[in-house]
Amino acid sequence: MKNFAYYTAESVPAAARALAGMKNAVAKGGGTDLLALLKDRVLEPDEVVSLKGAKIDAKVAGVIAATTTLAELAADPWIKKHAPAVHVAADEAATPQIRNVATVGGNLCQSTRCWYYRNKNFACSKRGDDACAALTARSQHRYHAVFPHVACASAHASNLAPALIAVAATVHCVHPDGDRALDAGLLYQDPAKGRVQDTILRPGELIERITVPDSPLARRSTYVEFRERESFDFSAVSVAAAVHIDGGKVIDARIVLGAVAPKPLRATAAEQALVGQPLNAATIEKAAAAAFADARPLSDNKYKVVIGRRLVMRALAGLKEMR
């Protein structure tokens, strides 16, 4: 990797101020994704600002500091009880070694696993090229998007993002020009030529903490994923789902698909298929069909649609049995 100047910050606002004054800098959490990108020279920053020592006030139940490791999140009893989807997503991520180092903020801001993005010998619109190698005729794309953007077929890699979106978590962002709090679902945007990041974070803007609400929706949530290997693998498709059922009917639902599009995808049609209905075999099947009705898989990843529908059904069936 290219050498870089290294800075630490005592707080996230201090890190944001430092980053805003730099031209070619990146923020670093645990570094498990960043160091791999630096080694492959996908990113070649002049400055790295580490958030490892940044102090974040997150003592209240349901408040997750961005620097929390996945292992710490998976061990959080409040999260396990009040947001099972988030617990499972953290607990099943990667491997023990990665979970001991990788942070929640880093998981949300990680780069796609797209091998064309990660190999500069291939064209990549995220890296500023006109074409997307994954969308060319003879590409290898079995792990790519089944809801591809016109310019980019990458699949979003975070498993925590769908879970946090499903439980309607809030992401608190810090920037020298003003802080903001976003619904986790609004953190991501469609890809654009020359933009490597998937989030809407502005230069110098950082996630400081995430708030998981104490809500009926979050308590009745789950996360399921399919991966080729039982461990040590990114998901090929993941589904996070949450429902609030009152009086025998679904009054609120969130279904979020991971690894099928360049960003985590809320399956709003599937959610609408459930609201106002009882959660039963028929409505579950309708929701699963609706979730992938608009999928446009590439030639080698149609399996993601088949498995994705089953995962939606499995997730919702699990929620039906919960409590």
Partner: peptide, 27 residues
């Protein structure tokens, strides 16, 4: 592998297993 995909570089940091290829020595 140098990329966090194999685990052979595992060492213990404060007692917990981590991948030494993905940790900066200075930290």
């Amino acid at each position: 592998c140098e990329l966090g995909e194999c685990g052979t570089c595992t060492v213990l940091l404060d007692g917990e297993p981590v991948l030494s290829c993905l940790v900066l020595a200075r930290e």
